[in-house]
Amino acid sequence: MSFIRTFHGDIHPSKLGTTYSHEHIVCRPPYWVEHSADDLLLDDKEKSKLDVLDFKNLGGQAIVDATAIDYGRDVLAVKEISEETGVTMIGTAGFNKSFLWKATIPEHLKKLTGDYKTFYEWIDAKSINELADFVIKEIEEGLEGTNIRGGQVKFGTGYNRITPLEEKTLRAVARAHHETKAPLHSHTEAGTMGFEQIELLKSEGVDLEYISFGHMDRNPDPFYHEKIAQTGALLCFDGISKIKYAPESTRIDCILELVKKGHEDQILVSGDTARKTYYKHYDHGLGLENILGKWVPRFIEEANQKDFDGKKLIDKFFVQNPARCFTFKK
C-alpha cells in the first residue's frame, strides 16, 4: 500500500496535485529568536495564510512544510492554515543542522526532549537508536505530542563538513526511515556534502530513490548534480526567487542539463521561503505566488526555446515527481 501522509491523514499519491516541495509556513527557530533575527521568524499565522492563499489561487494544491523540531515548528498553526485554505500540508520529523542546536530548548518541548538545556545537549546525550525512536514516534504518533503525523524525515549537515552529531542524526533518521518507510529529505548547506551524505546513507542500507537532496541550486555544478542523480535520488532546486544566490537562468540551465541527461523524473522545485522579506504579506517580498505566477511561465518559454516540452516538464516537477517522492511505500 502506497500513501502520502499529510496534516489531515493519509492520502493516495494521485490526490496530492501541484506541490511546492520545500517551504516554511509558520516557525520561530529558537536559535534565531535568541539572536533577535526577526527576519527569520515567520510568526504571524494570518500573514502566512495570505501567502498560502496566493499559491492556491494560482493552482497550488500542496506544500511540504520542511520545518523540523529544532527550527521552531508551529504544528497547530500550520494545520489551521491547511484547514482554512484547503491546501494540503505535509509535516517533517527529524532534525536540521548542528549550529541551530546551540539554542535553548523551548519549554513546551521539554516534555518530549527531557531535562536538557540545549538541543546540542539532548542530541549528544542520546544514542542513535534513541533518537531514531523519537523520530519514529513523530511519524507514527504525531509531531511534538500532537496527533499530526510527520510525512517525511529530515537530516542536515553544515557547509563543507559533517559534524559527529550531524552524522549521528543522519544515522538516526536513516533507521527511522527503515522502520516507518517515510521518505527522506536532506539539508545540504549551500549544496555541499551530498557525496559524503550518500556514503553514510549507503552504510545504513538506504535505497537512495527514497531521498530528496535539498538546496542543489546553491551549488550550480552540473557534474555534481549528475553524479547525485545517477544514484536514483531526487534533487530539490528550492532556491527559486533568490537572485542574491544566482540568477534564474543559472537554475534553469542546471535543471535543463539534468533533463538532457535523462533525469527529468528526479527534479523537484520550490522556494524554501523562510524569511519575512521573502513573503509578500509580511514584508512585500516576491511571496509564495512567484514560482507559479512568474517562474513557471519563464521556465516553459526557455525550455520550449531549447526544444524541450516545457509544460510536460512542469507537470513532472510539481505534480508527478512530488507524488512519487513523498510516498510511503509499505
Rank of each mutant, 00 (worst) to 15 (best):
273 T>D: 11
302 E>N: 08
138 E>N: 11
5 R>I: 00
144 E>S: 14
154 K>V: 00
298 R>L: 13
57 N>Y: 06
22 H>M: 02
12 H>C: 12
116 Y>N: 01
293 G>K: 01
9 G>S: 06
162 I>P: 09
68 A>S: 15
187 H>Q: 11
164 P>S: 04
195 F>C: 02
89 M>S: 02
255 I>L: 05
213 F>W: 08
75 V>W: 04
90 I>R: 02
96 N>D: 13
192 T>R: 03
188 T>L: 15
207 D>E: 03
315 D>V: 07
122 W>K: 04
296 V>L: 02
192 T>N: 06
71 Y>D: 12
14 S>T: 14
39 D>E: 13
133 D>A: 15
99 F>C: 07
24 H>R: 09
56 K>L: 12
179 E>V: 13
65 D>S: 01
62 A>F: 06
300 I>N: 03
21 S>C: 15
118 T>S: 07
57 N>T: 03
132 A>Y: 01
13 P>E: 05
186 S>R: 08
209 E>Y: 04
35 H>F: 11
242 K>N: 00
274 A>D: 13
50 L>W: 11
312 K>P: 02
205 G>C: 01
81 I>D: 01
201 L>R: 01
31 Y>P: 10
88 T>P: 05
194 G>E: 11
120 Y>R: 07
240 I>N: 00
175 R>E: 14
161 R>H: 12
67 T>Y: 04
287 G>W: 03
83 E>F: 08
222 P>V: 09
289 E>A: 15
162 I>L: 07
276 K>S: 13
132 A>E: 07
119 F>T: 04
143 L>D: 02
123 I>F: 02
170 L>E: 09
47 K>G: 08
106 P>L: 07
325 C>P: 01
265 D>L: 09
28 R>D: 11
183 P>G: 10
309 D>W: 09
142 G>W: 10
311 K>M: 10
52 V>T: 08
218 R>N: 10
72 G>K: 09
295 W>F: 13
59 G>R: 07
124 D>C: 12
71 Y>F: 13
298 R>F: 05
31 Y>T: 10
303 A>S: 04
91 G>W: 05
126 K>L: 10
115 D>W: 00
283 D>R: 15
146 T>R: 11
191 G>Q: 06
193 M>F: 00
222 P>E: 08
90 I>P: 02
208 L>N: 05
